[in-house]
Structures are given as C-alpha cells and as structure tokens.
Amino acid sequence: MIRIKLRVLENLIWVILAALIIVNAVITPCFFTYRNLLNILYHSAVLGFLIIAESLCLITGNFDLSIESSVAFAPAIGVLMMMRWLPGFNPIVAIVLTLVVGGTIGLVNGILISRFEINPFLQTLSFLIILRGLTYKLIPMSIFNLPKAFIFLGSARVFFNIPVAVLVMLAGVLLLHLMLTRTVFGRYLIAIGGNERGSFISGINTKKVITLVFVISGVLAAFAGILAVGRQQSITNAMGEGLVFMAFAGAVMGGVSLNGGAGTALGMLGGVLVLGVIDNSLTMLGVDAFMVYATKGLLIFVAIILDNSKIKLRERILFNEELKKVSRRAEHSNLT
C-alpha cells in the first residue's frame, strides 16, 4: 500500500496527464484522434528539448535563462551562413555549426558560473537579453526557403505519418534516462544538486561537471532551435520568446526540484506532454489566445504548489509508515 502511494506521488504527473486526456476526450471535439494526438507530440518537441536542458541545470541546483534566446540565436548563425554569408554552405555543416554555437554559449555561461562564481540568474539573464538583441539585429525579417536538409529534422514525417521530431524527442528522453540513472556523469549531477559542497569535498570535480551541464544545455537549446526552424520552415527573430518559463513549469511539474538533486527523464516527458495537451485542448476549444496565456501562468503557479506539497506529503507518508512499524513491533513484543 505504502509503495503504491509513493509510486503515485512520484509519478503524479502521469496521473494528471491521464486525467487530462480522459476529460478532453469527452469534452473537446476531435481531441482523441490519431492525428491530433500526433500533433500534440509534434508541437511538444521544441519545448521538450528546452525542458530537458532546463532540468539538467536545475538538477545541479543551477538554472539557465539564456536557452530561450539560444533557440533563435544559434540557428540564426547556421541559417545566415547558408543563406547570406557563404551561399552554398553545406546544410549538414550548418546544423553542426548551430550546435557548436549553442555549446559555446553554454561554455561561457558554465565557466563564468562555476569558476568565477557569478550568480547563475544574473549571468544567464544577461545572455538572454544580449542574444535576443543580436538575433533581432541579425534577422530583421524572417528568412524562408531554407535547404531541405536543414529543415528535415523539424518538418519531415516518416512511417504512419509520424514526425521525425517526435522520434528524436523520444530518443532524447531515452538517452536522458540512461544518462541520469546509469552514467557516472548523471550521478554526479544529482550528487552536486543534493550537496555541492559535499560533492566537492568528496573529490568530485564539481566545476567541470557544472560547466559541462551548461554546455549540454546550450547544445540542447540550439537543437530545439533547429526543430523549431524546421517546423515553421523559416527562421524568425522572435522564435522561442517566453518559452523559458514554460520550460521551468514543465520541469517542475515533471518532478524536478528547484532545490536541486531530484528529477527523472520520464517525469520530464510527462511535464512536456501535460503542457502540450493543455495548449492543444484550449486552442481546440476556441479559448482566446490571451486566456491561453493566463491559463499557462496559472499552471506554473500550480506546479510550484505541487512541488512544495509533494515533498511534505512524501515525508508524512514515510512518517506514518514508521509509526505503524513501531506500534507493530510493540504489539509483537507484547505477544511474545
């Protein structure tokens, strides 16, 4: 019984998701169709990678606001390379270049935060603004007609009409799961989030690990940017605006603790899907766009409350169990 309770609590996000799907299947027209469900997944891919990026930072007890601007800035460099600066530039190399740009931004963030001990909020906030400004400057107007290879990941569909982006996202979640549970690096992330000083004293190279996390976060943001460019088959300077807050919300709903040290890949996927379902159903129900935005804000609020009460609830369940055990032991000793 206690195990079930704890399991439910740990996977609360999937319970919420199931409930949302059931309710929407009844009240929202055309919701529960293959096409629409696939659509939800497709539209979640970009946010999905941002949530993973943000979650990794959160797990170590840091965070990264700049991913929101990297989403636009990194692919902007790749696109401009192909379309303006060096016409005929290989699109595959442009994808690699985009990822390198994202990684470099992360590297700068990581070094300044881990080695020079600059507050991660201020550091990544300044990059959020700088990079967005540069993107406006570099891409004053949207650029269309991008090479097929560059937009393949974000736009192509394969068997059963499944978008490549969805498969890529699922693969990403799987890799993340393996990384967090079964690799040394993943374990170090969780250890550092749990107690950075303790990890440092124990002999973990905490500065290196934290720098690496920011690099990964930057690369994932750039990758999300490539998917976003592919989906709209063009690049715009406002791409990704406001998404970082959704990334926070999704991460926290997926069980990532803002105090660091906790988070699972499956939970993050759940967080992505819940946000996707809500977005989709509200739009399909014809709710006005501003109300959709406000509703999302409400969600973040709920997410924080959940994060808070979950820990307390868990402690209470464990405590009650302990009480039961003690009383059982007392009874037992009375009998014998």
């Binding site: 969780i190 250890a191 749990g194 107690n195 303790g198 004293i201 124990s202 040290g261």
Partner: peptide
C-alpha cells in the same frame, strides 16, 4: 551534514 553526506541520496 554539510560536507560529508548527500542527504537526499
């Protein structure tokens, strides 16, 4: 507590 263990693990 501060430097030895990682208490949530």
């Amino acid at each position: 507590e501060k430097e030895g263990i990682i208490d949530i693990l």
